[in-house]
Simulated scan of single mutants.
Amino acid sequence: MLDARLKRSIRWLGDRTDPDLRADTTGWWRDAETLALLGPALAALFPEASPTVVVGPESHGSLLGPLVASHVGTGFVAIEKDPGRSADSDAWLEVMTPPDYRDRQLRLGMRKTLLQAGDRVLFVDDWVATGAQVEACRALVGRSGAQWVGAAVVVDGCERPQVRRAVDLRALVHVRDL
């Protein structure tokens, strides 16, 4: 049921002169039933994981992550792009991503105090293309001393099988099925 809703409410943007089409997933957020199903469905990808915290990158991971966290009864930590400190005493963990689908490198970060040794961390996002952000988020989790349990995403479009295996990527749908 969720697969059909996801497929029906995605749009591909671009025209004949564009080298690539871009996915517009905003229809997923507009449909209340789809939105209600996403948190439980993403959590179900890791039934054995028992995460103590869910993380997700800005912006769609920050939307989906709280849905999953609420469903499994944990807290949520947003991974910020180009984070800014409030003060010198505001300690952050930061990493640079490998090139992403737009060939950009992003600086990702989170406050040091939000993850601790002993935490079991589930990553959540809408889409993985190159795997750059999920790979960088895994590095952040490692630096915190917490344990990475896996990556739950709506769409697996990961271009690098080694990244898929390294982060234990599980998805609701594969890009080829959209």
Score class of each variant (00 low, 15 high):
4 A>M: 11
4 A>N: 13
5 R>K: 12
10 I>H: 10
11 R>K: 15
12 W>Y: 08
12 W>A: 09
13 L>R: 05
14 G>V: 06
15 D>C: 07
18 D>P: 00
19 P>H: 06
19 P>F: 05
20 D>E: 02
21 L>E: 02
21 L>K: 06
21 L>D: 02
23 A>P: 01
23 A>I: 07
25 T>L: 15
25 T>N: 12
27 G>D: 04
29 W>N: 04
31 D>S: 06
31 D>M: 06
31 D>Y: 08
33 E>C: 02
36 A>L: 12
36 A>W: 06
37 L>R: 14
38 L>E: 11
39 G>E: 09
42 L>D: 09
43 A>G: 03
44 A>D: 13
46 F>I: 02
50 S>F: 03
52 T>Y: 10
53 V>A: 08
53 V>D: 05
55 V>N: 11
56 G>M: 12
58 E>V: 13
62 S>Q: 15
63 L>K: 12
64 L>I: 12
69 A>W: 02
70 S>F: 05
71 H>Y: 03
72 V>H: 00
75 G>E: 03
76 F>G: 07
76 F>V: 08
78 A>I: 10
78 A>C: 09
78 A>H: 09
78 A>V: 12
83 P>G: 01
84 G>S: 07
87 A>H: 11
87 A>D: 10
89 S>N: 10
89 S>E: 14
91 A>H: 09
91 A>V: 11
94 E>A: 14
96 M>F: 12
97 T>D: 11
97 T>C: 14
98 P>R: 14
99 P>K: 07
100 D>Y: 09
101 Y>Q: 09
101 Y>K: 06
102 R>E: 12
102 R>S: 14
104 R>P: 08
105 Q>T: 15
108 L>A: 11
110 M>D: 10
111 R>L: 03
112 K>H: 09
112 K>F: 02
114 L>W: 10
117 A>E: 12
118 G>R: 05
119 D>W: 01
119 D>I: 01
121 V>Y: 01
123 F>S: 10
124 V>L: 06
124 V>G: 09
124 V>F: 04
126 D>L: 13
127 W>E: 08
127 W>N: 05
127 W>Y: 13
130 T>I: 03
131 G>Y: 06
131 G>V: 03
131 G>F: 04
132 A>T: 10
132 A>V: 12
133 Q>H: 15
135 E>W: 12
136 A>H: 07
139 A>S: 11
144 S>N: 02
145 G>Q: 01
148 W>P: 00
149 V>D: 00
150 G>D: 00
152 A>E: 01
156 D>R: 03
157 G>L: 05
158 C>S: 04
158 C>V: 02
159 E>R: 15
160 R>I: 14
161 P>I: 05
161 P>Y: 04
161 P>M: 04
162 Q>V: 11
162 Q>S: 14
162 Q>M: 08
164 R>M: 03
165 R>I: 07
170 R>F: 05
171 A>E: 08
171 A>I: 09
171 A>S: 15
172 L>W: 07
173 V>P: 09
174 H>S: 12
175 V>W: 12
177 D>Q: 15
